[in-house]
C-alpha cells in the first residue's frame, strides 16, 4: 500500500483513505480542544482556592468575636494583669463611621461637579485633569498619606487628627467616583440631550433636568463602589489619624479606624491581638460587601 501511488488506487480506496485521514485530524483537533478547555477549567478552579480560603478563615476565625461587647466596648491594651485582654472595637467603629462619612461628604460634590465638568467642558485643561484622575486611581494610596502628612500633620507639630484621614480618603474616593460618574453620564442617550437642547433649554438645565436624573442609578452605584473601596484603605490614613483608644465622634482628635486598628494589631507583638484581627476582618468584610451589594441594587432596580 505504501509503495502504490495515489493514482493507482481505485476511487473507493482513495475516498476511504481521505475519510480516515479526515477523522484522525478531527479526532486530534477535538482532543487538543478538550485539553485546552480543561486547562482553562483548572485555571478557574485554582482562582477559587484563595477566595474560599480567605472566606473560610475570616468567617471561621472571626464569627465568635461578633458579640455586642466586642462591637461596642473600647479597645483594651494588654497589660501585666491581663495579657489577653482585647476589649472591643467600638473606638474603631465610631472612627470609621466619622472619618469615612466626612470624607464622603467632602468627596461627593467634588466628584459630581468634576464629572459634569469633564462631560460638558471638553477642552485641553479638563482632558489633562481627566488623565490625572485616571492615573490617580492606580497610584499607590500611601502617596496620598505621605502628601497629607506633610501638608497637615507636619505643619501641626506632628499632631494627628481624624479630619486629616478624611482629607486623605478624598484622594481615594474622588478619582474613582469621578471616572465612574463620567461613565454614567456618558451612558445617557445622546438623543435625549439633543432633544433637550433643541427645545431651547440651556446646557445647565439639560444637565440638571435630563442627564442627571437619567444617570442617577449609575451615579449612585459609582459613588458607593468608590466609598466601599475607601472604607478598606489603610495606607493613606495610617500616619495621619493616629490612635484613639476611646470611642469619639470628634474629628479634631486622633482617631482609630477598622483598617488601622487591624494593622496595629497585626504588627503588634501580642498573640491575642493578632487573632483578634480575624474578628475585625469579618466586620470590615461585612461592611465592604454590604456597600458593594447596595451599590448593585440601584442599577438592578432601574433596569427592571
Amino acid at each position: 500500500m505504501s509503495t502504490s501511488t495515489v493514482s493507482q488506487l481505485s476511487s473507493t480506496e482513495r475516498r476511504e483513505r481521505v475519510r480516515l485521514q479526515a477523522t484522525s485530524t478531527v479526532a486530534r483537533r477535538n482532543l487538543f480542544s478538550k485539553l485546552y478547555l480543561s486547562s482553562l477549567a483548572i485555571a478557574l478552579a485554582i482562582a477559587f482556592i484563595p477566595l474560599f480560603s480567605i472566606l473560610q478563615n475570616v468567617i471561621g476565625n472571626g464569627w465568635h468575636y461578633l458579640t455586642w461587647g466586642f462591637l461596642t466596648q473600647s479597645q483594651h491594651l494588654p497589660d501585666l494583669m491581663s495579657r489577653n485582654a482585647i476589649g472591643g472595637i467600638g473606638n474603631a467603629l465610631t472612627g470609621t463611621a466619622v472619618v469615612d462619612g466626612v470624607a464622603l461628604l467632602f468627596a461627593v460634590p467634588i466628584a459630581l461637579l468634576l464629572a459634569v465638568a469633564f462631560f460638558d467642558l471638553r477642552n485641553k485643561w479638563t482632558l489633562i485633569v481627566r488623565a490625572a484622575m485616571e492615573t490617580f486611581i492606580g497610584l499607590p494610596s500611601i502617596l496620598f498619606g505621605v502628601f497629607i502628612y506633610v501638608l497637615f500633620v507636619a505643619n501641626n507639630h506632628g499632631i494627628t487628627e481624624g479630619i486629616y484621614g478624611s482629607y486623605a480618603l478624598c484622594f481615594i474616593i474622588v478619582p474613582v467616583s469621578t471616572i465612574n460618574c463620567l461613565a454614567a453620564l456618558e451612558s445617557v442617550p445622546k438623543t435625549l440631550i439633543e432633544a433637550g437642547l433643541s427645545l431651547g433649554s440651556r446646557p445647565s438645565r439639560v444637565m440638571w433636568r435630563v442627564v442627571l436624573p437619567v444617570a442617577r442609578p449609575r451615579i449612585l452605584t459609582g459613588l458607593f463602589l468608590a466609598f466601599a473601596r475607601s472604607v478598606g484603605e489603610t495606607a493613606p490614613i495610617l500616619f495621619v489619624i493616629g490612635v484613639s483608644l476611646l470611642p469619639t465622634y470628634s474629628l479634631t482628635t486622633s482617631q482609630s479606624t477598622l483598617p488601622t486598628l487591624m494593622y496595629n494589631y497585626l504588627t503588634g507583638s501580642y498573640p491575642s491581638q493578632r487573632t483578634a484581627c480575624w474578628g475585625i476582618a469579618l466586620v470590615l468584610m461585612i461592611t465592604v460587601l454590604a456597600l458593594n451589594l447596595i451599590s448593585r441594587i440601584f442599577v438592578a432596580r432601574s433596569s427592571k
Partner: peptide, 9 residues
C-alpha cells in the same frame, strides 16, 4: 473588593 489589610492578615 477584599481590603488589602485582610490579605495581610
Amino acid at each position: 473588593v477584599v481590603p488589602s489589610i485582610v490579605y495581610g492578615v
